[in-house]
Design a protein around this nucleic acid. Structure first.
Lengths: 379, 379
DNA sequence: CTGTTAGCGCGTTCAA
DNA sequence: TTGAACGCGCTAACAG
């Protein structure tokens, strides 16, 4: 008869006894950073462990060594392909280094993010990786939350943890930089090269750095060719598929005028916008046939009424971008790579951690590239 | 001067000293399951904790109590919207119960799944949630891996943990059932009602239960109306977007014949298949205008050559299903709800755990519903 | 190289 | 109610 509510786990003690050695030897045999242990004993221990089905208790190890092998990943919304792509990379790379990933979701709320970080610290993770939702709002509440977040994060680093941000370096921590500005700027230039001149845009709220950087890059890219993106042609919406949909409807309601192309600051929004435009009869250009991109920019409005054709472009290159029709022109962001880099940066940074606290924290950048597809045929 | 490599964390001891009470009192004040502590002391402790920025060490708590507040979630691929949708629900519900979620990815390999479960047990999680990749392959390796998995899972439950499976109850554990069979069957019947008679299908490999159940349901649904799905009209492919794409190409290469509709056993495959069909000139039906579904089933092949129009249907209702064009007809699966249910089931099951080991484990079912969209207009 | 002994941070029993 | 002491499972000194 086993004890009733036994957590039953076989302990290292059991293994040691079964193998007829001391606890210490058992520990060394199974985890021995150095192999200061007789091969025969070692084998006896390993056998005993296998026989008993022993599995080391990570919590106990963590308490004993004073450090865990856990990485805390904080995202806005795991169902969003942008975040799940990054998460995929994080998990993969973490796993390659024997690290376990715990995941938390902020639902795009700074308050929740703060609360989460606080809670997560209880795990004493080695790293905390924050992706998305960095904002630049100087106003009361947000600024306050931001300061509190920094305090929390600093305390975490003071305790030996490392924090890594993904996207832009708004806070003084190690960061995997994504050049949103340049990506959008390049996109703008290539669209102009394809013949577009009159644009509209669907952006996120001003405070979202990712959104404002992309918008600014796009604007500057146009400006390089003497084209301006009128303020009244830029709508703000949620950073989601529905946000894109709503933004497009707003644009339509306000009158598309002679707009030729709508730039949505991210793909999920672009995809939502496409659906809105399609529903409104602004049938998307369609490249049929097996031929490459931009082959036949033909379209027919099923409603019969002649509506203006609107081209569209996004940012991120989520998998879906390839499957909507017309396929979405976008700026490719190596999502998984972003995640992998975060782990590598944390690992490297941790190594150099003893060194100087040079203010801003280490960074690494990932490049973007413009992917022209059928949603923006040459005109 | 603090100790050098200090993990620096403020401990409960520090708090106790600061508050001028014993460790025990501090512990009770902060965590007191029962409130057997003087209100004044309690407050002093709480204040001290706040002042010092104390955060309880979860690992230490876990060792002391012999149980964690962790849930291990195992998925095939977090970048797949099916899994990320479920994960979203799991994380949300877990969070609502103060549970932390750690995530692991099998990359659709049974061997890796087994290895992961073994590793995960080290965390001593309260629950292990397995979603996807259940297979019914009686052959050597797989059967062996399956047996090993069951052994591992049984040991886990023997140690007080609970395992919950999502999808089908192939193994004797608590399960959130998804009626793949009925969903597909209903879909088939509704498609027949819309006038379709000649079908093809893109399925996953035979061993994938999710795939075979759906295919069987679809077949039976057709059979109810005296229609058969010929074996040579069913191709097998990877359970991914590219799998769907490849499957469709295979179908095309073999000759679509008079096929009217292609059923892909899940949405990501369906979406991939749509792209393949589109590229091949089997322009999808297109419902323009603001009107509802099936309004104008019009299409024009940009290549000029007249190609056959192929309707398509999927399963899962991933977000993208709404944004491809034509919008994808599918069977809605409440993904987030699936995840939430898993947590609730584990929680409930844990409560009743002391009770009888009634062989199969508790179950709960979630319903599906057919969503007819433009990809399958009435004909 | 091995065993003994201390802790790690915290929950919980047992007296007081 | 409170505090002292022990134990959780394990690692890391410390002697032997």
């Amino acid at each position: 008869m086993r004890p009733q509510h036994s957590t039953s786990g076989v302990t290292l003690n059991d293994v040691a006894r079964e193998a007829g050695v001391s606890l210490a030897t058992a520990s060394r045999s199974i985890n021995g950073s150095d192999r200061k242990v007789n091969a025969e004993y070692r084998q006896r221990v390993l056998d005993a462990a296998a026989r008993l089905g022993y599995i080391p208790n990570l919590s106990a190890q963590a308490v004993a060594k004073g450090s865990t092998s856990t990485v805390a990943l904080v995202v806005s919304d795991i169902a969003d392909p942008y975040f799940s792509g990054i998460a995929s990379g994080v998990i993969d790379e973490a796993d390659a280094h024997g690290l376990i990933v715990t995941m938390a979701v902020t639902e795009r709320s700074a308050a929740r993010e703060l609360q989460l970080v606080r809670t997560l610290r209880g795990q004493r993770p080695r790293f905390i990786i924050l992706v998305g939702s960095r904002s630049a709002d100087a106003s009361g509440d947000v600024a306050h939350a931001q300061a509190a977040l920094v305090a929390e994060l600093d305390a975490f680093e003071a305790g030996g943890g490392r924090v890594v941000m993904i996207s832009q370096q708004e806070l003084p921590y190690a960061t995997v930089l994504l050049d949103n500005y340049s990506g959008a700027r390049d996109l703008a230039k290539q669209l102009v090269a394809r013949g577009y001149r009159r644009f509209a845009a669907i952006a996120g709220h001003d405070t979202l750095l990712t959104s404002s950087d992309r918008l600014r890059g796009f604007r500057d890219g146009l400006a390089d060719d003497g084209i301006t993106l009128p303020d009244d042609r830029v709508v703000r919406a949620e950073f989601t598929r529905n946000g894109g949909y709503d933004g497009a409807r707003e644009l339509i309601a306000a009158g598309l005028g002679d707009t030729q192309l709508v730039f949505a600051v991210n793909d999920v929004m672009a995809v939502g916008a496409m659906s809105a435009l399609r529903e409104a009869g602004h049938t998307q250009v369609f490249a049929g046939g097996v031929g490459g991109a931009g082959s036949g920019a033909v379209a027919s409005d099923a409603s019969g009424r002649s509506k203006q054709l609107i081209a569209i472009a996004g940012f991120d290159d989520i998998p879906t971008a390839l499957d909507v029709s017309p396929a979405l022109t976008t700026v490719r962001v190596p999502l998984e790579e972003l995640g992998r880099r975060a782990i590598r940066l944390a690992l490297a940074d941790a190594g150099a951690a003893a060194g100087a606290d040079t203010g801003q924290g280490a960074t690494t950048s990932v490049g973007t590239s413009v992917i022209l597809r059928e949603s923006t045929p040459a005109i």
